[in-house]
Simulated assay, not measured.
Amino acid sequence: MSGKIPLLVLIGPTAVGKTSTSIKVAQNLNGEIISADSMQIYEYMDIGTAKVTEDEMENIEHYMVGEILPDEDFSVSDFQDKANEYIEKIYSKGKLPMVVGGTGLYINSLVYNLDFTNAVSNPQLREEYLNEAEIHGNEVLVKKLKKIDPESAERIHINDTKRLVRALEIYHETGNPMSKYYKNFRQPNDDYNIVMIGLNMDRKKLYDRINKRVDIMLESGLIDEVKSLLDKGYDKNLTSLQGLGYKEIISYLNGEYTYDEAIEILKRDSRRFAKRQLTWFRRDKRIKWVMVDEFDSQGEIVKEITEYVEKKLELE
């Protein structure tokens, strides 16, 4: 066996059952879990992100859950740095590092050699774009980006000023769109001995689970959680509050949607998000897909994954 750190990466669309499955697998493999979810990183945002609770953790250590405030910046580069630190920390304890989540770019920052540290920079140009957005709104940045990098313009949210400016800056400095910049760095990361597992299920069953999860979030107090964030003074335009489950409820609270409209839009956008997640992950041929609805019990799913990982990583 090589001297590389073993790393289990468990991915899949929203509501497929990653959290509970990963905890059972961690118990079997003496693992600890690093969340690769761009929303669960925020404190005070528990219900809308389906954040793992203390009870659900079943004494399995979790990292990158509720570690930053909703108004703090947190980039893919920040995730990459912290996750690499935690992987080392977990391994040094004699445990198996597990990365679990559905944020594609977070996962890619670990399983590919995405080098964010040497990216080009032009502070003066950045300042110009920021001023332009301040005066004319972010629409002007999106319009510019659509002309040079439609892929990034489609992917980056209109309120994510920082990333819109970054995409424009990269194009200006390199002559290449940011989307190409990311694609060119899709070289597998050789620092770790990586095993990737993807959870999936029949599309209709998944969509039913997503709809039901939204209902559970509402019953659990999602609207009060959103009100509480706004009462704490967090701006509705923050990247964190533009996340699924938050922006729709904010629009309802502001009278832009009726309650029923907000819930229907949230369910629809959550289903679309799951579809995009699957499209993203299917590009990586290293992933072993496990169709969870083809098993009779979660115990069987966990057994299948445990045995596969033990064999691939040659664990004792």
Results as ranks from 00 to 15, higher is better:
D78H: 05
H62K: 12
I263Y: 01
R282F: 11
P13Q: 08
Y129I: 08
H157E: 09
R272N: 15
E307C: 03
F273H: 15
V16T: 04
R283S: 13
E310V: 07
P6K: 00
E56C: 10
I23N: 01
V142P: 04
S77H: 14
K212D: 07
V111C: 04
G66T: 08
Q298L: 08
L241K: 00
A83Y: 02
P97Y: 01
V165A: 01
K288A: 10
I148K: 03
R166M: 03
Y234C: 02
E127C: 11
K89E: 15
E132L: 15
D149K: 10
R283K: 14
D202G: 04
E128A: 10
I5A: 01
K303Q: 09
D190Q: 09
G104P: 07
I107E: 05
L278M: 10
K24N: 11
E151Y: 12
V100A: 06
R209E: 08
I135Q: 14
G31V: 03
T103I: 09
D71R: 06
K144Y: 09
A50D: 14
I87S: 04
D231P: 04
D191L: 09
N189F: 06
V100E: 01
K303W: 01
M217C: 09
N211W: 08
R155I: 15
S179M: 02
K232Y: 11
E256Y: 11
E127H: 13
D215G: 06
A167N: 03
Y42K: 08
E67H: 14
K89S: 07
E300S: 10
I90R: 00
M201H: 00
R272T: 11
L114E: 11
